[in-house]
Simulated assay, not measured.
Amino acid sequence: MAVFTEVSPAQAQALLDHLELGQLSSLRGIGAGIENTNYFVDCTRDDHLHRYVLTLFERLTAEQLPFYLRLMQHLARRGVPVPEPHADRSGEILFEVAGKPAAIVDRLHGGHQLAPDAFHCQQVGATLARMHLAGRDFPLHQPNLRGLAWWREVVPQLLPFLEPGQAELLRSELAYQEQLAASPLYAELLRDCSGPIHADLFRDNVMFEPGEGPGRERLTGFFDFYFAGVDTWLFDLAVCLNDWCIDLADGRLVEDRAAAFVAAYEGVRPLTGAEHRLLPALMRAAALRFWVSRLFDLHLPREASLLKAHDPRHFERVLRQRIARPWHALHGGAAE
C-alpha cells in the first residue's frame, strides 16, 4: 500500500465521474504496505460525505485482477464484511488510472486493533471460517502466487544476502515444506479443505469499531485481498495464528489467544483430522512465506515514494519458534 504511482486530483475525479460517486473533496496517499498504490478518497454526493479507497495495482496484471475483485464482490454479496468494488453501469469493476489497472472500493469503518486479546481473536476466527465457507462456490481460480512455487524461485536469489545460519534455516525449511507438499495427507487438504483464501490477514488488514463496554470492539471487516488465491484453508488459519496470536517481541505463540481463535473458527467450520495433524507444519509454512517475502522486499526492493520495508527478522524468529515449539490445537499446547 505504498505510493508508487502519483495520482492527480483530476485523474481521481475522472474515475469518480465515471462511477457517478460524487465530487472529490480529499485525496491522500496511504504510506503503509509495500505492494500497491493506495489513496483514501473522500467525496461529496447529495450533500453527504462518502469515503472510498482507490487502489492502483503495481505488480498484478489486468488478467490476474478479476480474481481478487470478483472474490471481494462475491464475499460481500454473501454477507461477509469486506469492501465491495464499485462497478460502472456495465458492471465493470476494473479501470485504468495513471496508466495502471485500478479499482475503487468502500472504506471500512473503524480502526486497527494492534494489541488484540482473545475476544478480538474469536471474532476474526469466526469471520474467517464464514469467509472460507462463502467462497466455496466462487467460480474463478487462481493459485496462491506466494506459495511453494514462488519460494522455490526466489530463495536462491536471497541466499547470497544471508548469514550462514540464516541460509541453512531457509534451505532446510524449504526442503521440509517441499516434502510436506508431496505427502498424501497434504493432498487430502488440497482435495477436501481448500478454496479462496485471504493469505495476508494480519492485524492491519482487519477493522474494528467501538462496541458495548470497554474493550468490546466489534469487527467491521477484512480488507486488502490482493494476495488472495486458492490454497488450503488451513494455510489461511496458520497465517492468522502467526500474527494475531503471538508475542510480537519474540514470536512466541500466546496459547490462550490461539485456542480462542481456533475454537471460534471451529464453531463455524470444524477442522478435519488431517487439518489438526498438519496445523503445526502449516504454521511453519506461513512463517516461511512471510520471512521469504520480507527478505525479498528488503534485498530486492522497488522504488516507491512512501515505501517502508518490513523487518524480515521478525518472521525468522516466528519460524524458529514454530519449529522449536509446534502447537497442536486439539490439546491446546506445544509438543516438546
Rank of each mutant, 00 (worst) to 15 (best):
A118H: 04
P156K: 05
R146C: 00
E168A: 14
G110W: 14
D204N: 15
Q142E: 04
A181H: 13
A167M: 06
E212A: 14
R136H: 09
P184K: 10
R171L: 05
P214C: 04
L190D: 10
G215W: 11
G215Q: 10
L148I: 07
N144M: 10
A134D: 12
A181F: 06
E209G: 10
R191K: 15
A175M: 04
L170R: 01
F161L: 08
L140Q: 15
G213F: 11
Q122M: 07
E178Q: 15
P184V: 08
G110V: 11
G111K: 14
M131D: 02
A182R: 11
F202W: 13
P210M: 05
G110Q: 14
L180K: 02
Q142V: 00
R136L: 12
L189I: 14
M131E: 01
T127K: 13
E209N: 06
A134S: 12
P160F: 09
H198S: 08
P143H: 04
E209W: 12
E209S: 15
L140H: 14
S172N: 13
E168S: 13
D204L: 03
F208E: 04
L148W: 02
Q142I: 00
Q179R: 12
G110S: 13
A181K: 01
W151S: 05
F119W: 13
P160G: 09
R216E: 14
M207P: 03
S172K: 09
R152I: 01
L189F: 14
E173K: 06
E188V: 13
M131S: 06
G125S: 07
Q113D: 12
D204R: 05
W151F: 15
L158C: 03
W150P: 00
D204C: 03
D192W: 12
G111R: 15
F138L: 09
R171K: 09
L158G: 03
R216F: 10
P184D: 12
Q166F: 00
P139E: 09
A181R: 04
R191S: 12
R191L: 14
R152P: 01
Q123C: 01
Q166V: 02
E173A: 06
Q113H: 08
E178Y: 03
L140T: 11
Q179N: 06
R191C: 11
L148T: 02
F138E: 12
T127H: 13
S194H: 09
L170W: 05
A187T: 11
D192G: 03
P143A: 04
E173W: 05
Q157V: 07
R146P: 00
L201T: 10
L128G: 04
A129T: 06
L201D: 12
L190M: 15
A181M: 03
H109S: 12
G213S: 10
R171S: 02
S194V: 07
L148P: 02
